[in-house]
Amino acid sequence: MTSESSHQKQTRARIIEVAAELLTASSTGQISTREVCAAAGVKPPTLYHHFGDKDGLLHAVVADGFERYLARKRAVGTTGDVVTDFRRGWDMHVEFGVTHPALYNVMYGRPMARQDVPAAAVARTDLVATMRTLDDAGRLRLPVEVAADAVETAAVGVTLHLIRTDGTRDDPAAAIVRDAVIAAVIGPSRTYTDTPASPHLAATAAQVRDALPHGPVATLRASETALLRDWLDELATAAPTEGPERHRRPSPR
């Protein structure tokens, strides 16, 4: 019984592996169950026994793809510097996509395909956790979930673009978008001193902040406007008794 179960698992894994390979080699991102069976050396009833139908097979391929993605992400590790780690994580994401274009397209180009895929949920949870770490460190410019949405949208968008244009991880577009996202999402590190903002300075900062319109300001870039608001918020809420150990103002939710 154990031997039969082991054989079944090996057969299932082999079919998933072959399907992923065929997807990667496909110029259209489409595969048929017939070619999967032929490449895996199994008969159609065997494939249907394990996956039900083609959609079930693609769901299994997506699950396997996200598990491989998470394993690759874990292997990158951390350096202790949040910006460096963000860059490394972004570059790994793009590299995974352009290296496995058809698989990535199924994983991220077809939202329904990753529904009920635990590893896909873990990938999202990891991203949110990264944003929360930045928020706890006082480096996040946006609410956690908004930041996670912005990062995922940009990373997936640029990766799908590179796949469509046969680009590579080193394509300038990937670095430009990555650095723009960093500027919009991650703020500078702060070193607090024993010299607090005076009540007059705090009041003036609050006045300027409240006078700023919503949306773009003059010729400032979006990232510059966000930074200006962040600075004014910090000055406006600074209490004269606060020093180097003061608590950071919580981000709005």
Rank of each mutant, 00 (worst) to 15 (best):
R249T: 13
A113S: 15
G215K: 07
G215V: 05
P101T: 02
G77P: 04
R221M: 07
K9A: 14
S27R: 10
H200W: 06
Y48T: 02
K54N: 08
A123M: 11
L58M: 15
R12P: 01
G157M: 06
R74P: 00
A174Q: 05
R221I: 00
I182A: 15
P244I: 11
H49T: 03
R14I: 00
A38P: 00
D149W: 10
A238S: 13
G215I: 09
V128H: 05
L232P: 06
D149V: 07
V82F: 07
L227M: 13
A13R: 10
V98D: 07
V94K: 03
G157K: 05
M1K: 11
V117Q: 09
A150R: 14
A38Y: 01
H7S: 14
V217S: 04
R253C: 01
R253Q: 09
A19R: 03
P101S: 08
R190K: 13
L58D: 12
K54F: 02
P250W: 07
D166N: 15
R246H: 14
E224S: 14
Q30C: 01
T33S: 13
Y48F: 14
A75G: 03
D64L: 02
D85Q: 09
R68Q: 14
V128W: 09
R132T: 15
P196K: 12
V122C: 09
A63D: 12
E145W: 02
L201F: 04
Y104V: 09
T11W: 00
I16F: 01
T219W: 12
D210W: 04
K43Q: 14
D194H: 14
F86D: 00
R74F: 00
G29Y: 08
D126E: 15
V76E: 09
G138C: 09
V177E: 06
V217M: 08
A205M: 10
E152M: 12
T28V: 13
C37D: 10
T99Y: 01
I31N: 04
A205C: 08
A71D: 14
D53M: 04
A147D: 04
V217I: 15
T195E: 10
V76T: 12
L58Y: 12
Y48R: 10
D166I: 00
D179H: 08
V208G: 03
H59W: 10
V94G: 03
A183V: 06
T237I: 05
D53P: 07
R178A: 07
V62S: 04
R87Y: 05
A75K: 13
V18E: 01
E234Q: 13
L127C: 07
T219M: 12
K43F: 04
L22T: 04
G97K: 05
A120E: 06
I31Q: 02
L127A: 13
V128I: 15
E35L: 01
